[in-house]
């Protein structure tokens, strides 16, 4: 699932997932915490990794520094709006 909107902000699903991925979690844990179907979590996580917004190590996922910056930017924009 694409994780970035055309204006450069993160999609709603990406914001939800990345907020959880501030800490290391498996995708099953992310799905359970966010209540987003696992198939969508997997597809979104794949896109997050492709765009270097998250990394995976031994089945655990965490957002990168770039992902952290993008999340902060999106949240600030949402709060401003």
């Amino acid at each position: 699932m694409p994780c970035t909107n055309s204006d450069g902000t993160l999609t709603e699903a990406a914001v939800t997932l990345m907020s959880v991925m501030v800490e290391h979690h498996s995708l099953e844990e992310v799905a359970s915490i966010t209540d987003i179907p696992l198939y969508l979590v997997r597809a979104t996580a794949r896109d997050l990794i492709d765009t270097r917004l998250a990394t995976e190590q031994d089945g655990a996922y965490r957002i990168t520094k770039l992902g952290s910056e993008k999340l902060a930017y999106t949240l600030a924009k949402l709060n401003a709006g």
């Binding site: 699932m1 696992l38 198939y39 969508l40 997997r42 597809a43 794949r46 896109d47």
Partner: peptide, 13 residues
């Protein structure tokens, strides 16, 4: 309509 999906995304369900 929910982005790029693979069959393997559904594994486990």
């Amino acid at each position: 309509t929910h982005g790029m999906l693979r069959l393997s995304d559904f594994k486990g369900s």
